[in-house]
């Protein structure tokens, strides 16, 4: 079983094919920017991109990844991603920061599809990403700011 993470092919044949991508990334590949929050796709802290689509790694068995290109927070390097991360830092979105990898992965996926998201679009794309510090207003503002900077 080989999967491609951030452009690198990883041989994970030794692992249980049922193992969620989350634990393979964190415990085996060593990419801990993708977080564990709930294990049941309710909090979004584990969000990664598989072929550009925001995906909850905790509910993605390794066997289902196939030839999909997995991108984690550590592998982000598109102009959209840079705009999002810059907006996140200038607006000081993060408090504890633990959910923010997932928030950013969801935001980048949103802005890659929708260059000028409305507040309703943001609600629809980001409601699956829980932030217990309730940084939501800054998440929203940062998405709008990133959209403006990319325009």
């Amino acid at each position: 079983m080989r999967i491609t993470v951030n452009g690198e092919v990883r041989d994970l044949s030794a692992l249980d094919p049922d193992m969620p991508l989350l634990w393979a990334l964190r415990d085996v590949v060593g990419l801990t920017g993708t977080k564990y929050g709930c294990g049941v796709a309710q909090c979004g802290a584990c969000t990664v991109h598989v072929d550009g689509v925001a995906t909850r790694a905790c509910q993605t068995p390794l066997s289902s990844v196939g030839n999909g290109q997995v991108i984690t927070i550590e592998g982000l390097n598109t102009p959209v991603a840079r705009a999002v991360q810059d907006a996140w830092t200038t607006l000081a979105v993060a408090q504890c920061g633990y959910c923010q990898s997932g928030q950013i992965m969801s935001a980048v996926a949103l802005l890659s599809e929708n260059k000028r998201p409305s507040d309703a679009d943001i609600d629809a794309a980001m409601t699956g990403n829980l932030c217990r510090c309730a940084t939501y207003n800054r998440v929203r503002a940062a998405i709008h700011q990133a959209a403006r900077s990319l325009a």
Binding site: T32, T72, W88, A92, A94, G97, S101, I104
Partner: peptide
Amino acid sequence: PERIDSRDKTNGSQNYTLDMRLPGMLI
């Protein structure tokens, strides 16, 4: 301009307890 830990908390490099990895570590 920015909180001192904003950058690390935006690029996945901030380490929390559950991110700890030590040689030979068991879970």
